[in-house]
Amino acid sequence: MIVAIRKITGKTPIKIWHKEYDIPNLDLIVIPGGFTFGDYLRCGALAARSPVITSIKNHISRGGTVLGVCNGFQILIEAKILPGSLIRNKKLLFTCRETTLEVQSCIENPFLSGLKIGECLKIPVAHNEGNYFAPEDLLKQLKEEGRIALKYIKQKDNEKNYNPNGSTEDIAGILSKNGKVLGMMPHPERAMNYLHGGTDGLKFLTNCVEQIIG
C-alpha cells in the first residue's frame, strides 16, 4: 500500500505504530491489509483494541478520511466504526483471485466521486473472512442512507462464483454515515500495473488521492 500511495503521490506516507496515541493531522489514514495479531481471534478484534484506534476515532470525529482495505475493513468493523460483520467465506476457504466490482449509487464521498456510477473495476481479493453480513434492518438502513459503495458483479450471465465470499447482496465495501470512511475487502494496491492484476486499482487509488488531497 505504501508503494502504491508513493507511486501516485510521489511522497512516502507516514507509518503509524500501533502503540501510538498521538497522531498528527492527516489528509487520509489508510488501514491496509494483513493479519494483525495473526487473526487467531476474530479478524481485527485485537487490533481494534490497539492504542492507535483511539486516535483514528478522534481523526474521524474531526471529519477525517479513512480507507480500510481487507484486514483494515475488518478492524473498522471490530472497532465499531463501520456496522455489520465480516464472517468466514461461504466455502470456508481462503480465496485469492480477481473480482469485478461495480461502483454503486451512494452518498457523496471522496473515494468514488470521480468514478461513474455503474463503472466496473477489476480488483483482486485475498481473504478468509470477507463475507459481509448485516441483519435486515441494518441492510435496509445502509441502502436508505446510500452507504453501499461497491458490489461484486457478474461479467457473464451464467457466472456462478462472481461473489468470492458469499457476502450479503454481493457487498464488497461500505461507507460510514458521513461518507468519510470506506471499508472494502478487495485490494486496489494489488492492481497497479498491466503486468499483473491490471490497472483498475491504480485508477481507484488515484481518484481517492485526487479527491481527498487535490
Binding site: 508503494v3 476457504l93 481462503f94 494496491e189
Partner: peptide, 11 residues
C-alpha cells in the same frame, strides 16, 4: 488449490 494461497501480497 492455488486460490487458497495469497499469490499477490507484496505487490
Amino acid at each position: 488449490i492455488w486460490e487458497q494461497y495469497d499469490s499477490s501480497v507484496m505487490g
